[in-house]
């Protein structure tokens, strides 16, 4: 009597699994694009290549938003994973903020066109790399939350490590900026960008903190 219903249950689950995977894909792609966009900007400023990448990231963020809404609606409308759906909802929304931080940082470069002296370029790139690695580890942790709960802690550990590294680089960079001969307005402008990139790592760490709790809850 339950056969068609059971098939429906598995069908619905599979469709949602695919959507969740796509959501993660978008975030991970955005991180990689952020990295190449930042490299392009540091090399030659807001060139066509940079703008193209920035728009690509915007599009990915919009798609991620759509997927997130669709997943959330399905989870609640079809009463799937009743115990964990609150956590999944929290996870998706917090991940979306990381996506937002990536997008926001690139928008900042595109609108404000900061003038980054060559002596700081290398460290800006290092900071960007570290932030991207934080996001990539977070995506792995978040995927593990759905498939392999025990691996969550391993990936989260890396998120925390990269975030601390990013903090160190950002402090060092800010110190170097304020000790340089630039005028104050320029210094303050550069500081904003250091903080925007560092914020990506901070947001990713926030999500990882939540994930730790969700993972403990699920192991009970």
């Amino acid at each position: 009597m339950e056969l068609p219903k059971m098939k429906g249950l598995f069908g619905r689950s599979r469709a949602l699994e695919v959507e969740i995977d796509h959501f993660h894909d978008k975030l991970s792609q955005s991180a990689v694009i952020f990295k190449t966009a930042l490299a392009a900007y540091l090399k030659a400023g807001a060139t066509e290549g940079f703008i193209e990448r920035q728009q690509h990231l915007n599009a990915l963020e919009t798609e991620g938003d759509k997927l997130r809404r669709s997943i959330e609606t399905k989870l609640y409308a079809e009463t799937l994973i009743p115990e964990s759906r609150g956590d999944v909802l929290g996870l998706l929304e917090a991940s979306d903020e990381v996506h937002g931080a990536l997008q926001g940082a690139l928008w900042g470069f595109a609108i404000e066109l900061p003038d980054i002296p060559e002596e700081f370029c290398e460290e800006f790139m290092e900071l960007g790399d570290m932030a991207v690695m934080t996001v990539e580890s977070l995506v792995l942790a978040s995927r593990a939350f759905f498939r392999n709960i025990e691996a969550v802690l391993d990936h989260n550990h890396k998120v925390e490590f990269y975030e601390t590294e990013a903090d160190k680089i950002s402090s060092k960079l800010k110190m170097a900026i304020f000790r340089s001969d630039l005028d104050l307005a320029h210094k303050l402008h550069l500081r904003t960008f250091v903080e925007r990139i560092d914020e990506i790592a901070d947001k990713a760490e926030d999500v990882a903190d939540h994930l730790n709790i969700y993972a403990i809850k699920r192991s009970i």
């Binding site: 799937l80 994973i81 964990s84 498939r147």
Partner: peptide, 10 residues
Amino acid sequence: AKLHLLRLDA
């Protein structure tokens, strides 16, 4: 088995 959260739910 490393089942997906949703598969495990089903």
